[in-house]
Simulated assay, not measured.
Amino acid sequence: MSAKVQWIDGLKFVATSGSGHSVVLDGDGAKDAPSPMEMVLMAAASCSSVDVVSILQKAKQSVRTVEVLVDGQRADATPAVFTDIHLKFVVYGRDIAPSHVERAVKLSADKYCSVSIMLSKSVNVTHSFEIVNEAG
């Protein structure tokens, strides 16, 4: 796996993954694009989302969509690393079993999500979930 980051101007950069996909990052207060630290949060939420959706689909749950609300607390001193990250999964669908969602979130946190597991070596990473049952 590889990537390249190239300076655009100011404190803006374009990051290109080895697979050829690009994203702009802004190190100047996230005025024009996500900051690198915001990208870390988004990476953790995205990685975990892939796992949770996949596991729920395999469990034949009627999931319409999944959102992850991720919140990161940073140290007050430099470097302002994350000290705590919380991922809250909000699962929308019909007749979704809480036991399946709990299992999916736990498997992602403990076994599958490389980003979250890597971060948990130095950051307090916690998880919760909510189910929004939709009529239908």
Rank of each mutant, 00 (worst) to 15 (best):
A77F: 08
Q61H: 06
V101M: 06
D76C: 02
T65V: 05
G72Y: 11
R64H: 15
R64A: 05
S62E: 12
L69P: 02
C47H: 10
Q61C: 07
A77G: 08
V91D: 00
V66A: 08
I96T: 03
K58Y: 12
A59Q: 08
D76V: 05
D84A: 10
D51I: 12
M37K: 13
H86R: 13
V68F: 00
V70H: 03
P79W: 05
S49P: 07
P98I: 07
D84K: 13
A44S: 12
L69Q: 12
K60E: 14
V40E: 08
A80M: 13
A59C: 04
K58F: 13
Q57E: 15
V66E: 00
V50D: 04
S46R: 04
G72H: 09
A43V: 07
K58S: 11
A59V: 10
I85T: 01
A80W: 05
V81I: 11
T83F: 05
D71K: 09
M42R: 07
A44T: 11
K58M: 13
V91Q: 01
I85D: 00
S48A: 15
K88I: 04
R74D: 02
D51V: 10
M37S: 11
M39R: 04
E38D: 09
R94F: 07
P79N: 08
C47M: 10
R64E: 15
V52I: 15
L41A: 02
S54C: 11
Q57R: 15
F89H: 12
L56K: 01
T65K: 15
V52M: 07
I55Q: 12
L87N: 02
V70L: 07
H100R: 14
F89V: 04
R64Q: 13
S54D: 11
P98C: 03
G93W: 03
A77K: 13
E38N: 14
V101L: 06
V91P: 00
K58D: 12
P79I: 06
P79V: 13
T83K: 15
M39P: 02
A80V: 07
A59Y: 05
Q61Y: 05
A97F: 05
G72F: 01
Y92V: 09
V90N: 01
L41N: 00
I85V: 15
P79C: 09
E67S: 07
R74F: 07
D71Y: 03
C47L: 08
Q57W: 09
S99Y: 02
A97I: 08
A77C: 04
V63H: 00
K58C: 13
S49W: 04
V81P: 02
A59D: 08
R94T: 13
S48H: 03
S46T: 09
V70Y: 00
A43H: 04
A80I: 04
V53W: 02
D76Y: 02
D51L: 10
Y92W: 08
H100D: 11
T78K: 09
V68A: 15
K60Q: 14
T78N: 09
F82M: 09
G93C: 05
K88H: 12
F82V: 10
L41F: 03
A97G: 07
V40H: 04
F82N: 01
R94H: 11
V66H: 10
P98A: 09
S99L: 05
S99P: 02
C47I: 08
